[in-house]
Design a binder for these strands. Sequence first.
DNA 1: CTGCATCCTGTGGGATACTG
DNA 2: CAGTATCCCACAGGATGCAG
Lengths: 125, 125
Amino acid sequence: MSRKNNIYPNKEGCPVEFTLDVIGGKWKGILFYHMIDGKKRFNEFRKICPSITQRMLTLQLRELEADGIVHREVYHQVPPKVEYSLTEFGRTLEPIVLQMKEWGDANREALEARRSNSLLKEQQK
Amino acid sequence: MSRKNNIYPNKEGCPVEFTLDVIGGKWKGILFYHMIDGKKRFNEFRKICPSITQRMLTLQLRELEADGIVHREVYHQVPPKVEYSLTEFGRTLEPIVLQMKEWGDANREALEARRSNSLLKEQQK
DNA sequence: CTGCATCCTGTGGGATACTG
DNA sequence: CAGTATCCCACAGGATGCAG
């Protein structure tokens, strides 16, 4: 997902992979989703997903920012305050993310059952 | 992306992340996309994306199969022949993948320009 | 509060060789 | 043709500490 050392990724030029490179990062989906209904602050994200580390939160937000998906508004005050919001460009991804949410809602339960099932089979060997 | 050692991933239960876990693997998008217009054989995939290794191709296809997204049809003959196709369940992801393709087509050029631009700035420091 | 720097570990994933 | 099996290491990503 990092691309610094990967100036010409996706040699085959697959547009699907390209989109996934933008939004498919480990936490980008959930971060994006929670910005749909408005700007969020750094620690709000931490509350939403407690298992993300500070480091990863920063990194993922910075990648989204570098791709022009999110806007980072810094308030120079004490204590500092930073707000993240979707850019107009980022909004063009909104329908895709919303569809992913719907699909996830509709299918997670069934799929998790299937997964733990195949796990059982593996362990029975 | 691997889930074997991760029975309860996505503790926060974010459906977006869940969908990404299913289709967001490094090669799953492109593999899925090329199955939309019909079944594909192992080596067809290798021609489509020459930079994927056999190992990764196998692993990614197996995960898609384990999630019930693709069907794996084995013909017991010499030489062997295996065909991969989308299941009915897998087809429910089709609109999402197609949208990702469209978005990628529409925005890749601009985004790659932006990326190499920020790379230049970094190097000038 | 919102980060960045550093260190360290686990593992994703490449290269290569072998097989039904 | 369509895979396994091994080896191996770069890098993703966690933990911790410091800073504006």
